[in-house]
């Protein structure tokens, strides 16, 4: 630190950084898309141009070549999990890694399939292939949500942060609690339903769909709404109850926003719970596949 406060007067060039406003799909003018397409084309060419006897399979020259490339790629692709967590001081761009991860991963569909020579069966070799395809398909889902959801997430957030959304709901709960003090038991029980039987996030299914059919607040709101409309027909509604209805409606809106936020955050993450564990399984199956090929063929 002390050395920095020393006079330099030197025009220190700033560390080079990526100021291009490009997402991971178009990174460096879609460099990795082009590389992956080239790689896939090459794999197809190798497959078509070689004519092994009796038929294409993993044991031919082309099969070994594609298998080796595929296995190395799988190992490298799985390292992104480590790379994103190790923050070094050296130049690196996680965006470039993601871009390469996405496109090289997709090219594995071609490379892996050609490596099998379209021979599948009930064995450890095909298990690796199936696991690989599950990983790729879950990854495809990931690409789709990464491309679609952020804009919606941002629009729904409307400058509020997640803690602020939750705090808004807690504040409404406090106000409901205060406003319910003068009510009779039946109406107070309705408010209690909103306070006690209403979870913001809920179980995994509720988080993923954003549907909370048994939401206590919604039931309380409907019930209070009925009472207030009835009172309206018969004359003057109870002002305390209209205030409660107003608060329940506001809470409903706040809940809806928070739940949409949670739904999208869950959708952005959920696929990783398939993608990553299956990758682990794939790596294990791959080891078994390679060992068995070399030991027992």
């Amino acid at each position: 630190m002390a050395s920095r406060s020393q006079p330099g007067g030197r025009a220190v060039t700033r560390a080079p950084r990526d100021i291009a406003h490009e997402g991971f799909l178009t990174h460096a003018r879609s460099r990795w898309l082009k590389i992956s397409l080239g790689l896939s084309a090459l794999a197809i060419a190798v497959y078509v141009l070689t004519d092994p006897a009796p038929r294409p399979n993993g044991g031919s020259f082309a099969g070994y070549l594609l298998g080796t490339i595929g296995a190395l790629m799988i190992v490298w692709l799985s390292l992104i999990g480590l790379r994103k967590r190790i923050i070094t001081t050296k130049p690196f761009s996680l965006k470039a890694w993601t871009s390469a991860h996405v496109y090289l991963g997709l090219s594995l569909i071609v490379i892996g399939t050609l490596h099998t020579g379209f021979q599948l069966g009930w064995n450890v070799h095909s298990l690796s292939y199936v696991l690989m395809m599950i990983v790729i398909i879950s990854g495809l889902y990931g690409i789709i949500v990464y491309a679609r959801l952020p804009a919606q997430l941002s629009a729904n957030r409307n400058e509020a942060t997640q803690p602020q959304m939750l705090e808004a709901i807690r504040t409404l709960d406090r106000q409901l609690d205060t406003a319910a003090q003068p009510l009779d038991k039946a109406s107070a029980d309705l408010v209690r339903m909103s306070l006690e039987e209403c979870e913001v996030s809920g179980n995994l299914w509720e988080r993923l769909t954003g549907r909370h059919p048994k939401c206590g607040n919604k039931r309380a709101r409907d019930a209070v709404q009925d009472i207030v409309s009835q009172q309206m027909r018969s004359g003057k509604p109870d002002p305390a109850l209209t205030q409660i209805l107003f608060l329940l409606e506001r809470k409903d809106a706040a809940l809806a926003q928070a739940r949409r936020h949670i739904r999208m955050k869950t959708q952005l993450e959920i696929w990783l719970y398939i993608h990553v564990p299956v990758t682990m399984a794939l790596l294990a199956a791959l080891i078994a596949h390679i060992l068995s090929v070399f030991l027992y063929w």
């Binding site: 920095r4 700033r14 560390a15 080079p16 950084r17 990526d18 100021i19 406003h21 490009e22 997402g23 991971f24 990174h27 994103k84 923050i87 070094t88 001081t89 050296k90 130049p91 690196f92 761009s93 996680l94 965006k95 890694w97 993601t98 990464y146 952020p150």
Partner: peptide, 27 residues
């Protein structure tokens, strides 16, 4: 600004989708 780190700002380097950029207003 992650000065002294040869890679530049870590927030930008660590963004997986390219959402984060650090720029000067003229840029």
């Amino acid at each position: 600004m992650c000065s002294g780190q040869t890679g530049g700002p870590a927030c930008v380097r660590a963004c997986p989708t390219g959402a984060a950029i650090r720029v000067s207003p003229e840029q």
